[in-house]
Simulated scan of single mutants.
Amino acid sequence: MTTILHRPARIVAKGPFDLGASARFLAGFTPAARPDAGDEAGTLRLAFPVEGTWEHAGVLVRQRAPGSVEVSVEAGQRVAGEAVRQVRRILSLDVDGSGFAAVGEADPVVGRLLERYPGLRPVLFPSPYEAACWAIIGNQLRMASAAQLKRRLAERNGVSVEVSGHRLASFPAPAELLALDRLLDLPEVKVRRLHSIARAALDGVLDAAALRAMDPGEALYRLQKLPGVGPFSAQLILIRGAGHPDVFPTAEERLHAEMRALYRRPEAKVTELERIARGWRPYRSWVALLLRTNREARSAS
C-alpha cells in the first residue's frame, strides 16, 4: 500500500476532553484489544479502513494543548481528509460537549462519575461496519475470545499499516472480507452474516452520517433488518459505531445493573431506568459509557 504522511490537522474540542483518558479506555476496552494504542502520554495510534473509499489509513493522534489534538495521517492522497473526520467521530470530538458538565450538576451520580473520569468521552469503533462485525463475531462468545478472533482476523486478512514506527493491523475492508470464503474458525452462519454486513457497508446501509441523521428508533429498526443483528447489536452499532450521543441502551444489562447499584434502586425496571436517563439528555450515550467504565473498573478491583 502506497501512503503519504500528510501535514497534521488540528481538532479543537468543545467542552472537556483528555486524549490520555481515551487512550487508557481503548487500551482496556476488550473489543478493541489494543493495549498498544498509546504507550506515550497524550498519544494514540489507530489504523482502520476509511469509510466510503475503504482505503486503509494509519493515524497518530497527539494532545498538544488542553482541549485540542493534532492528527497525523498516513494514507493515500484522496482519503486523508476523510480519515481526519473519522478520527473526529471516533473520539467523539464531533459533538459539542460544553453542556456535559451541567448534566453532572443536575444529577449527583453523573457528577461523581465526571469527577472520577475527567475528560473521558466515548471512544468508538472506527465505523458502524466494524461495530457490526464485532457484534456478529462476538455473538454467544466470551468477550475475550471474541476480541482475540477479531484481532486475528485483522492480522491475517487485514492490512498492516505503520504508524509512528509501530505496525498496526487494520481490519479488513468490506470488499476484502467478502473475498474470504473462510474466516478463521468461525462457523458458516457467522461467515454468511459477516458477508451480509460487508455488502451492507458497500451499499451505504451502515453509513455513520446517515444513521446519525435518522430518528434513533428508525435507525435501530433498519439495523435490525441485517442478519444476526438484534436489539443489543443494533444499539451497539448506532451508539458505539455511528457515535450517536443521545441514545439510552435499553438492551445493555450490565449498564442497567450499574444504574441500579449507583442510584440505589435494586428493583428498578428498564422503563424506570429510562426515565432516570432522560435527565442526561442530550448525552445519554455518554453517561452510559461512564457507567459501564465504572462497572468494569469496580469489577477489576
Score class of each variant (00 low, 15 high):
97 G>R: 05
288 A>P: 00
112 R>G: 04
67 G>W: 14
108 P>M: 00
54 W>N: 09
28 G>M: 04
27 A>W: 01
284 R>G: 02
274 E>Q: 15
134 W>F: 10
197 I>M: 11
122 P>K: 11
229 V>P: 10
234 A>M: 05
102 A>S: 14
10 R>W: 00
203 D>P: 02
243 G>P: 08
228 G>W: 14
5 L>Q: 12
229 V>N: 04
235 Q>C: 10
1 M>W: 03
52 G>S: 06
202 L>H: 10
276 I>S: 00
23 A>W: 02
82 E>H: 13
191 V>S: 01
147 A>Q: 10
230 G>M: 05
13 A>Y: 02
215 D>W: 03
70 E>R: 09
258 E>M: 13
276 I>E: 09
175 A>K: 12
14 K>T: 13
66 P>K: 09
207 D>Q: 06
178 L>I: 05
273 L>K: 02
103 V>H: 01
257 A>W: 12
54 W>I: 11
40 E>P: 01
29 F>E: 11
106 A>M: 04
59 V>N: 03
134 W>L: 08
258 E>F: 01
284 R>Y: 03
176 E>W: 05
254 R>N: 11
92 S>T: 15
135 A>M: 12
274 E>G: 14
91 L>R: 09
88 R>E: 15
124 L>G: 12
22 S>E: 02
122 P>A: 12
97 G>S: 09
55 E>R: 14
129 Y>T: 07
244 H>F: 09
21 A>D: 03
175 A>M: 04
289 L>F: 15
32 A>D: 02
220 L>S: 06
196 S>A: 15
56 H>N: 13
162 E>D: 08
255 L>V: 08
115 E>A: 14
294 N>V: 00
147 A>M: 11
73 V>L: 00
125 F>R: 02
2 T>I: 07
22 S>Q: 03
203 D>Q: 15
187 P>R: 10
247 V>C: 01
204 G>I: 13
61 V>Y: 06
132 A>R: 09
287 V>L: 03
56 H>V: 14
217 G>Q: 08
3 T>D: 08
83 A>T: 01
298 R>F: 00
153 L>T: 12
86 Q>R: 04
144 A>E: 15
137 I>K: 02
297 A>K: 12
31 P>G: 12
182 R>L: 03
196 S>M: 04
153 L>I: 15
172 P>C: 01
111 G>S: 01
165 G>I: 12
99 G>R: 15
1 M>F: 05
164 S>N: 15
7 R>G: 04
259 M>C: 13
